[in-house]
Design a protein around this nucleic acid. Structure first.
Lengths: 194, 194
DNA sequence: TTGCTCCTCACGTCACGTGAGGTGGC
DNA sequence: TTGCTCCTCACGTCACGTGAGGTGGC
């Protein structure tokens, strides 16, 4: 494949045309070259890159694998050893499933936060008043997290913790219950309002 | 809330304890401070940060919003104006839906690439032989992309394109059909084998 | 004195995008 | 000569993680 109409020689494409042909951007092609994924020709006497059929073939492979979400590090391995493709794709399917499930969890949480109403997020609520408990629940804080927070506070500064609980308007009996609750082992689960 | 057992004064937590309480890492808390999302106390005479109830409250809000996937830039806005939370969450639900759909598309493509069998990816195939067509189809390249690639090649170097097609073992009639096919308007869709 | 936690830089990550400033070829 | 494409740095992105090297408090 030699002798062309406009290029100096051969069937090569310049970077912008090659990029359009494979559906990637010019900077992406330059980036792949820096990583060593492709080696477009550099003709002596010209600073320009020349993308030949082999380069286009590699770029098509890369673009498919990238479109499937494979990281470039894996793509590099697969270019060197295509036999690993099936295994890599199967692993990747599992990681995609995990990623999808993680986004679904974000979605569920976002809806829960929405469901509490626009004011329940409490950013404008008077600080450290009785609204704390409602605030925490509205935020979707788990009982386990409330417990950890109380436990940390109690361990670090138990007198300060008592005073903090009094500042919420709680009586001595309730304060005692909370302090016992948060210092107990995490195994015993007993519903407790904060 | 003043006077503690171990800390210099007050009910504040050190950074590691605060991090455990809210379920974030120490470096994350430092990062949030650099961004100005939180302002833990810096007592004169000590280089240590002190996380008080207000800081913990802000961190709980931040951690919920982050767990729902909101970017920190949005979180910053919501801390300043919680009334925007509902709108931001609703917008975010839509972007989550787009992200989930994008991952599903990656999943579908990964499965298609897998379905072609382990050797069909063709990385070890002799370059630029008759395997090109099968390779491209195996890779999952769309007809539109094949067309763009031929069109670019034809436009840039039509003599080189002809020679390339001959190198695939195609006859003159087939070469003529391909050249007409790829230089036609993209609106007319006619199944063509490459 | 020994650990433990704390501190502050500074750089790495991932896959590019975006200028700045300049050159070659028709 | 005018455009057009091409070139090479160098820095920005997003939300942190990871050392390096050092200090305070019990």
């Amino acid at each position: 494949v030699a002798g062309g109409a406009s290029a100096a020689a051969g069937a090569g494409l310049t970077i912008a045309r090659a990029a359009r042909a494979v559906g990637l951007s010019r900077t992406t092609l330059m980036y792949y070259e820096r990583l060593g994924l492709i080696r477009p020709l550099r003709r002596a006497g010209s600073r320009y890159r020349t993308f030949r059929a082999e380069d286009l073939q590699a770029l098509f492979l890369i673009s498919r694998w990238r479109a499937a979400g494979l990281p470039l590090d894996t793509v590099r391995r697969l270019l060197a050893d295509p036999d690993e493709a099936a295994g890599a794709l199967r692993d990747h399917l599992r990681s995609l499933d995990r990623a999808i499930e993680s986004l679904r969890a974000q979605r569920r949480l976002a809806q829960r936060l929405l469901g509490r109403g626009p004011r329940a997020d409490g950013g404008a609520m008077p600080l450290t008043k009785a609204g704390w408990s409602a605030l925490f629940r509205a935020i979707g804080m788990s009982e386990q997290q409330m417990r950890r927070w109380h436990a940390e506070f109690e361990r670090e500064n138990s007198a300060g913790h008592r005073q903090f609980l009094r500042s919420l308007g709680l009586g001595a009996a309730e304060i005692g219950r909370i302090r016992r609750w948060c210092t107990r082992q995490p195994s015993s689960r007993r519903g407790h309002g904060h």
